[in-house]
Design a protein around this nucleic acid. Structure first.
Lengths: 207, 207, 207, 207
DNA sequence: GATGAATGAGACTTCATTCAT
DNA sequence: AATGAATGAAGTCTCATTCAT
């Protein structure tokens, strides 16, 4: 139908614009943080007028929510739950894959980490809850993995509530420290992952 | 003599007020973060007029700096460098003492952690630099301890650049997660410290 | 074409608003002086919101500069340098024309004189420099005219540094005194000009 | 009486302090103008506490009034009315004396001129009225002198309303221009006075 | 009387959001 | 749908004046 085609076209353009503003928001929020970023900045980057902005997002706050939601979705999409079914790759190998993917983020998606690990922190209650919730899922994923490992006899008995947090914290910290050093060669990522896994699996003590 | 006394009195009162406003700022910043906290809020908490505020701090920004400086000073004061001279307590014991002290902070100084680990993040370049600097010192402290441990044969060979970050991250994460649960019994702290140390020293794998 | 028209229209409206606020500023500054005039007053007179003001002028100070610049431009535009080329009107006649134009200002542009001769005095260093500069140009114009007159043998020898100032001062004073009497008939202006010129040319003494 | 002595002493000290603050006010107002001068500045110069200020003057505004009043009194005290009684010095000589005294002011009392000719201009309605009133007395003095001169046949017929203003303006202008050049030798004053009187008596034209 | 810390009204300015075109 | 000029609430900071000591 002509009607349908026109409608579809309109919808597609609308989605296009929505994404365009979202992308601009991501960039600006990553560069300046929520408070220093002005709606004018974002419109400038998105190359739309200030009024247009409000046709697509009800407020600066809502755009920030959308940016966070998109980042969180992308982040969680990349993480593979460890598969312990018979025939799957060894759990440690799977872990390392996850680790490598995470460690690739500072290079591949620097603004993602800049926003999720830094600029979104303490913005307001809503964003804090979003972060807490993301964090909680990462933590639970880790904790359940550890418990599975314990059930399989791979992981020594421990308070997974504590150790899962320690693991999550170690990873976050490494990502945070990579966030600043702009460029690091791919080979190093493997080294980092190895070191991190060695630390997590065998600890620091010799023998 | 009388002159001296009057001067001393005046100075003391000035210091008192300075601290009073600092304390109010700490509370308000911890509760609301830098951006949502208004000078009026802080004055309300400190029970002084708005003009009074500016007799003691040149601006809201400067008060925030002072708050951060005080917190960082308190934090670093509490951390004891591990003493490896003969006759000192065993290094792990010393580490555990540090850990226990840190883990007591969510209870003893909840606003300290709220500000240093959360609200000060991403406020502006100055506060970010302060945090980065604090963080760097913590990291270096840890890294040097690990290197000392390696030299003594206690710590297995590893890239201390990575492992030190992992350790710092694990501790930060635990503090961050304790920050929200207001009340936790003293005995648990020892358990947490033990678990954390066990994780860091022996890793996760069984055997 | 349509693009051009829209742009031109927008530019015109912008210039209109700029002038509208400039005019309001002139009125308010003339009525109240720089310090008692608030941005709110000016916006009230211009019938725009406070925020609108800052779309057109970066600050109250800048508006005052713009007001002064416009007044100074208008003032200097009205003054004709005396033409001594052969065939030109007699110098005294030309002087009288200038004088008449100046003397018309209290009626035609009362706020101009109110601001330039009164309210801008002592506002701050920038405005003082602007006034000094205007004043200097008036003085030099007068001094050079006197020197030309001396070269032509029309003006008696004298220290033109002194006499030029005296002339400028006499004119300023007359303008200042006319500033308050709102209404005076046009014919009087000719009388004033005649008296002033008679004073300046022949002095006070009889014979 | 002891009582009397104590009271007198107290009164004298009060007057002393009053003058001390007045002097500080004069200096600060001359340096910075009314609006930029803060009560704190004045107290600093007077070496009294801020509270003390208000024991002697009800407000900054009132101090400014007092400063102006003192300056105006000093100024008018120095001006001698031309004495036309038989046996008195020739009127022009008396005029020159007045002129010389006025021209000595930029050196002798620079702050007086700075305040009366510049900083007090446009401060507010009260100070404007004071200036207008001073000005009016100077004008009337001049006008009556001219009329006396006309009655004696010394001064040519003219609209004294205009010429008196011209004379006052010329003098003011010269004072204003001297205000800035800090140092000029005493002999020059005579020259200036001569030039000014020559201008006023004989005008500019040759023959 | 002297002090100076405290007060709070008031000014300027920013910027998220609205609205007429 | 798109524009961008206009809006005005809200926030920071200054400084003349008051008041407890």
């Amino acid at each position: 139908m002509g009607e349908d085609g026109r409608h579809r076209r309109a919808r597609e353009m609308r989605e296009e614009r929505t994404k365009q503003i979202l992308a601009a928001g991501l960039q600006i929020f990553a560069e300046q943080g929520y408070h220093r970023a002005s709606v004018a900045d974002i419109c400038g980057r998105a190359e739309v007028a200030r009024g247009t902005f409000y046709l697509y997002y009800p407020s600066k706050r809502d755009l920030f929510d959308a940016v966070m939601d998109a980042l969180i979705r992308d982040l969680e999409r990349g993480i593979r739950r460890v598969d312990v079914s018979p025939g799957a790759a060894p759990p440690l190998e799977q872990l390392k894959q996850n680790m490598l993917w995470l460690l690739s983020l500072p290079r591949a998606r620097p603004e993602m980490l800049q926003v999720l690990l830094w600029e979104a922190v303490g913005v307001d209650d809503v964003s804090d809850r979003k972060l807490a919730s993301l964090h909680h899922r990462m933590f639970e994923l880790t904790r359940r993995s550890l418990e599975t490992g314990q059930a399989l006899g791979l992981v020594r008995p421990s308070d997974t509530d504590v150790t899962a947090r320690a693991v999550v914290g170690a990873v976050k910290e490494l990502l945070l420290s990579l966030r600043v050093r702009g460029d690091l060669p791919q080979e190093d990522l493997a080294h980092l992952a190895d070191e991190l896994l060695a630390f997590a699996t065998r600890g620091l003590l010799s023998v």
